[in-house]
Simulated scan of single mutants.
Amino acid sequence: MVAPRQPVTAYVALGANLGDAAQTLRDALTALNQLPGTRLVKASSLYRTAPVDSSGPDYVNAVAEVVTQFTAPGLLLALQQIEQAAGRERPYLNAPRTLDLDLLLFGAARIDSPHLTVPHPRMWERAFVLVPLAEVEPGVVPSVALAGVQDQLIQRHLLGE
């Protein structure tokens, strides 16, 4: 029997632009909270953004803070399983998607492997990541990073849209 790992705080970006994207994100948050050895601590508001390096309808985005006993590669695998359960397909790079889950931060870990890079390599360039991340944990996002993405349109997603 393997002893449980020390819990780690991780941040996960959620995005979707196909189907009922807002509901898909809510369902994904529930699925995150149901992962073994994992607890959803906080989730940001939902935000609407235009596709970046992609096409299709506007995205609905959020960020979740979780505490987990998974390793970073184990959490990535669990995130990919949640995406698949939501019908995620990868027909081409940056295709519209039913659900996209990205591991942004995993404690203080710095990981650079063929399958996983943490911190997420493009998170500092994207308002749809930084704005909800700053809502969940303001101390994680420097004000200079938010200033760097202030020209990217992002708006809080209103329920019922």
Rank of each mutant, 00 (worst) to 15 (best):
V67I: 13
P57R: 11
A22E: 08
P142G: 07
A85R: 14
P121K: 06
E137Y: 02
R122A: 13
L32S: 06
V60L: 04
P138C: 02
W124A: 13
T68G: 09
T38Y: 10
G74L: 12
Q155A: 14
L93R: 15
D102R: 09
T71R: 13
L103M: 06
Q152N: 05
L77Q: 15
A108E: 15
T24M: 08
T24K: 03
R126M: 05
M123W: 00
L14Y: 00
S45Q: 14
A78Q: 09
P119C: 02
P51K: 09
L29N: 08
Q69P: 00
Q150F: 05
G19K: 01
P51L: 12
P132Q: 03
G139C: 02
Q80E: 14
P119D: 00
Q23I: 03
F70R: 11
L93I: 11
G87P: 11
H115M: 11
A28W: 06
A22Y: 05
A22L: 07
A50N: 07
L32Y: 07
E137W: 01
G87E: 08
P73H: 10
L93C: 08
R88A: 04
A109S: 14
V67D: 10
R5P: 00
S54K: 04
L75H: 08
D58Y: 07
L75G: 08
L77F: 11
N61F: 02
V140F: 00
L158P: 06
G56W: 10
S45V: 07
A145H: 02
A109K: 09
A16F: 02
A3Q: 12
A28H: 12
D27T: 13
T24H: 13
A108H: 14
V131W: 01
S45C: 14
T71S: 15
Q80N: 14
E137M: 10
A78F: 10
A21P: 05
R5H: 07
E135I: 06
V118Y: 00
L40T: 12
A22S: 12
P73Q: 13
F106D: 00
D53S: 12
L77Y: 13
S44A: 11
L76G: 07
R156A: 14
L76D: 04
L29T: 11
Q34I: 05
Q34T: 14
V131A: 04
L101N: 04
V2N: 09
G15H: 03
A85C: 03
V52K: 04
P57V: 00
A127D: 05
I154G: 07
Q69G: 13
A86Y: 04
A43Q: 12
T68N: 08
R110A: 12
Y59W: 09
L158A: 15
Q23E: 15
N17F: 02
G160H: 10
G15N: 01
A62R: 03
L25T: 07
D151G: 12
P51I: 06
L46K: 02
L158K: 14
A64Y: 00
L75T: 13
D58E: 11
P138F: 02
V60W: 01
A3M: 09
L133K: 02
L14A: 02
D27E: 15
P119G: 01
P119M: 01
T9D: 11
P57S: 11
